[in-house]
Each structure stands twice: as C-alpha cells, then as structure tokens.
C-alpha cells in the first residue's frame, strides 16, 4: 500500500496533475501570505516585549507562550464565528474564501513567531544591552541591529511558522470549507481523500506535503549550519 502511494505521488507530480498543482499553489499562497502578515506583527511584538521593561511583562510573555499552543480547531471556530455572515464581520463576506484561511493561520502562527522572536531577542538584548548603553546607541538603531544580528535565528523562526501554517488542517477546514477549486489546500484535500477511503491518493498528497516539509527543514538546517560556521548562533 505505501509503495503504491509513493508511485501515485510521483505519478501525480510527473504528469503535472493540474488539480494537484492548483491545490499545492493555493496552500503555498495562503501560508506565505499568512506568514508575511504574522512576521509583520510577530517581529515587532516579540522585539518590543524583549527590549522594553514594563509592569506586566511576565504576564505578557506567559500569555504569548500559552497562545503558541492554541489548538487549530479552536482558532478555526473563533474565526468562523467572527466571519460568519451573522457574526460581527459577516458583512465582509470572507467566510469560505482563501482570505478567511489566511486570517485563521495568522491567528495561529503570529503567537508562535512573536514568542520565538521574543526568546531570540531577549537573549540578544541581555548580551548587547550594556554595550549599547555604553556606546549610546539609540533605540531605532538598536532594534535594527537586533533584527540583523538575530537574522539566522529569525529565519529559523519564520520557517517554523511556515511549517506550522502549511501543515495545519483543523482551522482552514472550518473557515475555508474545503471548496474544490476555491479553498481546497493540501491538508484539507488529504482529509477529504481519507474520508472518501481513497487512502492511496491521500497518502500520495501526504508525500507531496512531506516533501515540502523536508525542503523547509532542509533550509532550517542549512541556515543553522551557516550560522554555526560563522559563530552567529
């Protein structure tokens, strides 16, 4: 059975199966869009938390770490209730669109990006704080320096967020509806094929997703190796 699934997977790829590429492309589009937004939100949140000292900082970081573990179906449900036509944002008509899936993934991975960014920046801030005080480095230059010097760790963070987004099924299933040619992505297609009992096709899609995950992890390893080579970890 697994053999035939692998054959099927390569068959799908080799024959340039149009449906497969459509699904794969939508998966990548949705997850990368969500990732860009999450990075745009998560980097400043994590960095601000790391650099600033304020009352309730511990509470914020605890909350952020807790949000990292948000169950996707709960996120899906909350976004569904918000975007439902009878919900607060119903007038926008976003439910069952790729945008809804992007929103769900943003809710899901922004805390991950922010929390990992916080950890990276907190370490760096402890190391650099006195030097920057001594050199009288102003905050904007300090922040850009932190971002640049943490670049390898931050790339890893971003790739981790992407891995989480592309492999997530619970939330996008609820808010996207797994509509053919509109909101069907790799994970919901796998769920559908499994429910149709087409386990070989499901596994074939799984192999494609796994390949994508392997590529991402390969990139993480490459980035880490490079960082270690320079002593930039």
């Amino acid at each position: 059975m697994p053999d035939s699934a692998f054959l099927e997977a390569f068959g799908l790829i080799a024959t340039a199966n149009a449906d497969l590429y459509e699904i794969l492309w939508l998966s990548v589009q949705v997850s990368i869009t969500a990732l860009l937004i999450s990075v745009f939100l998560g980097f400043p949140i994590g960095t601000t938390l790391a650099i600033l000292d304020f009352r309730g900082k511990n509470l914020c970081t605890t909350l952020l770490n807790a949000l990292m573990g948000l169950p996707p179906v709960v996120v899906g449900l909350l976004v569904y209730l918000a975007l439902s036509r009878s919900g607060p944002f119903g007038v926008l008509g976003l439910l069952y669109t790729p945008t809804a899936m992007v929103i769900a993934q943003v809710v899901l991975i922004t805390p991950i990006i922010a929390a990992l960014t916080y950890q990276v920046m907190d370490d760096l801030h402890r190391e650099y704080r006195e030097l920057f005080l001594s050199l009288n480095i102003q905050l904007p230059k300090a922040i850009s320096t932190y971002l640049w010097d943490a670049r390898y760790s931050l790339i890893t963070t971003v790739l981790a967020g992407f891995g989480r987004a592309i492999s997530e099924v619970g939330a996008v299933m609820i808010v996207g509806g797994n509509i053919d040619h509109l909101t069907r992505v790799m994970t919901t297609a796998i769920a559908l094929e499994t429910s149709k009992g087409e386990l070989a096709i499901a596994l074939a899609l799984g192999v494609v997703l796994l390949t994508l995950a392997l590529i991402v992890n390969g990139l993480v390893t490459a980035v880490r190796t490079r960082a270690r080579k320079y002593g930039y970890t």
Binding site: E127, Y128, E130, L131, S134, L135, T145, W148, D149, R151, Y230, G231, Y232
Partner: peptide, 13 residues
Amino acid sequence: QAMVFQKPVLLRR
C-alpha cells in the same frame, strides 16, 4: 567615555 567589558561583546558581523 567608553568601556571595555570583561567578556567581549561583539556583534554578529
């Protein structure tokens, strides 16, 4: 004024 720390703090560059 400037300071040299006991443990050198160098930027990753």
